[in-house]
Design a protein around this nucleic acid. Structure first.
Length: 561
RNA sequence: UGGGGUAUGGCCAAGUUGGUUAAGGCACAUGGUUUUGAUCCAUGCAUUCCGAGGUUCGAGUCCUCGUACCCCAGCCA
């Protein structure tokens, strides 16, 4: 591939790496890692980090990226999540090859390193309880004060730490702490915890351990043990960097990776905090983590978003240290762009209005050629059955149309896509005055959609033969929230009050062209003039696909109204 | 003056060591093509880079002083 066809994005992290390479730092290696805690499902925010970490590695000669589970808090973690996370990363199109690691792989080494810290008088066992620890820590503006246990001897600390591991203490009874600086203006340096006691089973190590290492201690050491060169994380860890470096400076680790922080992704009309996503699920506002309205990877997948579109999105938004809120429209646009070129066009009527073509023979059915893609003949074509009674979209008829309305109205002529010109002769209403049926006539000369006399029609509408239609369920999804910033802390209201009550519209019986009976799970189509739809990967049955609307088409007509 | 960060058009974002007309995408607007009011194509869209001073022949890029916003007081990550 030529390099100009898809130039690498320029961002501050790549600039740092370029400099490092120029200076022969890290033996000119580039080694990153994606380090999720397996305590939930991955979402679009994680996708940014995944694309960054794997993407950077991919783009440099010999660069690699590890998948590492930061599993140091057994109470919240589970194999359900390690499984789903691996699936999601793979689905996004990335490959960690044989480099799947767990922080829990390093428990024994971490324990030995901790003893080293004690021997060097850089760590001590502290018996302050939680409240006391908080008091001793001081506040943002006042320094903390040293724990009364801070000056225990190396021997005593070694003995105590061994007994912590041997389960001789209860949860919360004591901690192993780093001995740094209780007066540091950086709270993270005020003798942070290294190990705490948790008498719970770990999803991988079972009951082997009753003490678990903290993130700050574990992460930097894990990075170093794996030979990571650039440890990319989000902005809130900026204050932790001195501690990251402190641990590595004390310990005989093989290398000292550089932590670099970037801004996490925020999307408007969306929430991405794990807590809130979880609340949506447990409170039943959505059907699960994979509800098509969820910003989770599984949700977006079920919605019909493609890995390509998500990767494209992550590339377009850039990587900076600026706190920003990206317009979801950018994501939707990436989806449309990808789907436009890859999906087959089909006809489907979601809100049917019956049309009887009076001059069309009663029993006749004809088969019409219909290409799958207007700009790409390679995608082939299928046959469309046409007959006397068809459905068109309710919104494609107006009894009293405004100017600029190109569609059907009394006495008007339109083209049925790939079929004939029809003219509306009569409007039939029910007792309540609702339009229930149109009586039309067709021009046999216009088969295929062109008039031999050269006359033009302004509008082309989609349709489906009633007799041949596949009747199935279609779900129209929309944004989950009405407000651009549902979780802004400036709102007085609870974020859930901004839930969009119309985020799902269920159509029990939509009428689709019969070829769709063969659609397979996760196939995506464009229903002409209405949007992109994907076959639900859960509720679809053989021959009876259920469709989820991925995203609508752009609609400049709707905008005009 | 607790500490750490960030400020470039409606939303993102590029802008190496100061040097001509401040990339690009999204959005928006207008025109063209079109059997999807889709796609596609063309054009337009920051006398200005948070503000005020200053240095300089020349500053988004350097200096000074301000302002706004974000993060930090888990035995979570």
């Amino acid at each position: 591939m030529s390099e100009n066809s898809n130039p690498e994005p320029s961002n501050f992290i790549r600039n740092i790496i370029n400099d490092d390479l120029k200076n022969n730092k890290n033996e000119s290696r580039v080694h990153t890692r994606f380090p999720p805690e397996p305590n939930g499902y991955l979402h679009i925010g994680h996708a940014k980090s995944i694309c960054l970490n794997f993407g950077v590695a991919q783009d440099y000669e010999g660069g690699v990226c590890n998948l590492r589970f930061d599993d140091t808090n057994p109470e919240k973690e589970d194999v359900e999540y390690t499984d789903s996370i691996q699936n999601d990363v793979k689905w996004l199109g990335f490959d960690w090859e044989d480099r799947l690691f767990y922080a829990s792989d390093y428990y024994e080494k971490l324990f030995e390193f901790a003893k080293q810290l004690i021997r060097d008088d850089k760590a001590y066992v502290c018996h302050l309880n939680t409240d006391e620890t908080r008091e001793y820590r001081g506040t943002l503006t006042e320094p903390g004060k040293p724990s009364p246990y801070r000056d225990r001897s190396v021997e005593e600390n070694l003995d105590l730490f061994g007994r912590m591991r041997a389960a001789e203490f209860d949860e919360g009874e004591c901690l192993l702490r780093a001995k740094i600086d209780m007066a540091s203006p950086n709270m993270n340096m005020r003798d942070p915890a290294i190990y705490r006691i948790r008498k719970v089973a770990h999803h991988r190590t079972g009951n082997d351990w009753c003490i678990y290492p903290m993130y700050d201690y574990t992460h930097c050491v894990s990075d170093a043990l794996e030979g990571i060169t650039h440890s990319l994380c989000t902005l809130e860890f900026e204050d932790h960097r001195p501690l990251y470096d402190w641990f590595l400076d004390q310990l005989p680790v093989p290398c000292h990776p550089q932590q670099i922080e970037f801004a996490r992704l925020n999307l408007n009309y969306t929430v991405t905090s794990k807590r809130k996503l979880n609340e949506l699920v447990t409170d039943g506002h959505v059907s699960g983590w994979d509800d098509p309205r969820m910003p989770t990877i599984v949700g977006m997948r079920r919605r019909g978003y493609t890995p390509e579109s998500i990767r494209d999105f992550c590339g377009r938004i850039g990587v900076t240290k600026t706190d920003t809120v990206i317009d979801v429209g950018v994501l939707e646009n990436c989806v449309r762009e990808d789907l436009d070129k890859r999906t087959r066009r089909v006809l489907g009527v979601l809100d049917p209005l019956k049309v009887v073509i009076e001059n069309y023979p009663e029993e006749e059915t004809e088969s019409l050629d219909a290409p799958y893609h207007p700009n790409n003949p390679d995608m082939g074509q299928r046959q469309l059955p046409f007959s006397k009674v068809i459905y068109i979209e309710q919104s494609d008829f107006m009894e009293d149309p405004p100017k600029k309305f190109y569609r059907l109205g009394p006495g008007r002529e339109v083209r049925l896509r790939y079929a004939y010109f029809i003219t509306c002769n009569e409007v039939i209403k029910d007792d309540a005055g609702n339009v229930v049926e149109l009586r039309c006539s067709y021009d046999p000369e216009t088969k295929g959609g062109n008039a031999p006399d050269g006359r033009k029609v302004k509008g082309t509408i989609h349709w489906v033969s009633v007799e041949h239609a596949l009747q199935t369920e279609v779900r129209l999804y929309d944004r989950l929230f009405n407000d651009p910033k549902p979780d802004s802390n400036k709102h007085e209201q609870d974020w859930k009050e901004f839930l969009n009550s119309d985020s799902i519209k269920l159509i029990k019986a939509a009428y689709l062209e019969p070829s769709l009976a063969e659609a397979q799970k996760e196939d995506i189509f464009q229903f002409e003039r209405t949007g992109y739809f994907c076959v639900d990967n859960k509720d679809s049955l053989d021959g009876k696909p259920v469709f989820n609307r991925t995203v609508t088409l752009r609609d400049s007509w709707a905008k005009r109204k």
